[in-house]
Amino acid sequence: MSGRQSWSEEDMAKAVAAVVSGKMGYKLAARTFHIPRSTLQRRASKIRYQLPDDPKPLMGHYRRVFTDNQEKDLVGYIKSMEKYFMGVSRRDIRELAFQYAEDNNLNHPFDVNSRMAGEDWVRNFLKRNPELLNKSEKEYELEPVNFDQFYHFMCQFS
């Protein structure tokens, strides 16, 4: 039987708290709480260097590009575009996500050459925001437009 993870999560939490607060170094905390120093370093650095509004990692090494608030802003913008007679396709959402990430100087994995988010990203975005899914499914269908309302809307901006 190996001695792997023979420590408790409670001891790890105490050690991480001691290191992050500056009361102990890694070596002393690892000895005091009987935990591996390398595991302590990894867990403490995740807490120490993560910004409060930083998107949380999802699975493995993949990270979310936008915070929850930023994603809500994107959803709101897409809904407002649909409200004002502008159909939004998946391609539009991909371009919008890229532009939003660029404008906010976010670290993103989107394709710089095509200036769009990936297909996987938009698929997962629509899964997280199912209220947009109905409109995006019908991206190639034309919806009837009330031209009087459209004209009134356009006159407001000129």
Rank of each mutant, 00 (worst) to 15 (best):
M1A: 10
M1D: 14
S2G: 06
R4I: 07
Q5D: 00
Q5H: 01
Q5A: 03
S6D: 00
E9D: 09
M12K: 10
K14D: 12
A15P: 06
A15Y: 12
A15H: 12
A17C: 04
A17I: 01
V19T: 06
V19A: 06
V19R: 03
V20P: 03
V20Q: 04
V20S: 03
M24H: 01
Y26F: 13
Y26T: 15
L28G: 12
A29H: 11
F33M: 10
I35W: 06
P36T: 05
R42M: 14
A44R: 13
A44S: 10
K46F: 04
Y49L: 11
Y49I: 10
Q50G: 14
L51G: 11
L51H: 14
D54C: 06
P55D: 11
L58K: 07
L58A: 03
M59P: 02
G60W: 02
H61C: 13
R63H: 14
R64E: 01
T67D: 01
T67W: 00
N69I: 11
E71R: 02
E71P: 00
K72L: 15
L74E: 11
L74R: 02
V75H: 10
V75M: 10
G76N: 12
Y77R: 04
I78Q: 07
S80W: 01
K83D: 10
G87E: 15
V88D: 15
S89C: 08
R90P: 08
R90W: 14
R90V: 13
R91L: 14
R91C: 11
R94N: 14
F98E: 11
E102Y: 02
D103T: 15
D103G: 10
P109W: 04
D111R: 09
V112M: 02
N113T: 12
S114T: 12
S114R: 08
S114P: 01
R115P: 01
M116N: 06
M116F: 07
A117N: 06
A117G: 05
G118Q: 03
G118W: 00
W121S: 13
W121E: 05
N124P: 07
R128F: 15
L133T: 07
L133D: 02
K135P: 04
K135D: 08
E137V: 11
Y140A: 08
L142V: 05
L142S: 08
P144R: 01
P144G: 06
D148E: 03
F150W: 07
F150G: 05
F153K: 08
C155K: 13
F157K: 04
